[in-house]
Amino acid sequence: MLSRTADHLYWMSRYLERAENLARMIDAHQRLSLLPRAPEAVRQGWQATLVSLGAGEAFFERYEALTARAAFDFLAFDRQHPGSIVHCLRTARENARAVRGTITSDIWETLNSTYLESLSFTAAMPESARSEFLEWVKYRAHVTRGVTSATLLRDEALYFTRIGTFIERADSTTRLLESRWRDPGGRGERLRAEASEWGVLLRAMSAFEIFRRLYRDSVTPERVTEMLLMRDDLPQSVHRCLDELQSNLAAVANSRSEETRRRVGELHARFHFGRFEDFRAEGLPHFLDRFQARLRELGARIADDFLVPAS
C-alpha cells in the first residue's frame, strides 16, 4: 500500500475517534452540570478539560470568560478551532476523500454524509438540541466503525485504520482520566459527590453498567481508573488499546518497524503484567502524563516507519 494512503487511513480513523471522544468528554460535563455542584467547580472542570486537551490558550484567544456554554461551543462547533468536533469530522472526511479509491464506497458515503449533516449543527442551536448533537456524533462514529468492519478487506487498509483508532482511543481515555484527576472539584472531602462525579464519567464512556458488573462495589476514582487502564477485555481501556496496537502493528510489520514493535510490546507489558498499585504510587496524574508522552513518541515512530518514510 502507498505510504500516503496508509497515512490518510490512519488520520481518517484518528479524527473520527477524536470527534467521538470529544463528544463523550463534553457529555460528561453536561451530566456533571446537572449535579449539585458549585459554579466554581463546574468552571474548574472545564478548565481541567481544556488543559488536558492542550486547548487552553486557543480558547482564551477567542473567548473572554470560561463558561460552560463557551467551552461547549468551542469544543463542538468552532469551525476555526482545529480540535473541535465539527473540524475533526471534516478532517476525517478530507482524509477519506483522498483515499476514496482504497476504502469501500460505503465507508466513504458514511463519512461524507456525516460531514454534510454536520454542517447543519451550529452554536446557534437551542439548548435542547445540543445533547442530541453529542448523541448524533457517537452514533455516526458507531455507524462508521460498523461499516468499516463490515465492508473493508482484511488487509493493510484495515490494520492502519485500526492503528489510528486505538492510538487515539488510548490517548483520549488517559486524557479523560487525567482531567478528572486534575479537577479540584472532583476530589477532596465530598465523597458522595465524588462517587456520582466518577459515575458520570463512566456513563459518558458507556462503561457504567460494565463497572457494576465487574466490581459489584461502589464507584471510587481508584476503581474507575483501574478499570479504564487495566482491563484487557474492555474496549475503552488502555490495556485493550495496546493489545490492538500490538497485533495490528505486527500485521503490517516491515523491515524498519522492529524498534517500534519492541516499544509497543514494552508498553503493553507494563499494563499486562504491571500492578495498578505501582502506577498509583507514581501519582496518577503524573503517570498519565508520562504515558501520553510515550504515545506521542509511538505516533511519531509509526509515521517514520510506514506513513511518511524518508525514502
Binding site: 500500500m1 502507498l2 505510504s3 500516503r4 494512503t5 479509491g101 516491515n254 506513513l307 518514510p309 525514502s311
Partner: peptide
Amino acid sequence: ELVEGQDLFVLDDVLYMRTTR
C-alpha cells in the same frame, strides 16, 4: 494505486512508489 507526485521517486533510471513495505 492513485498516486501523487510525492508518492513517486526515481532511483537509477527506475520509477518507484513509496509503500508501507
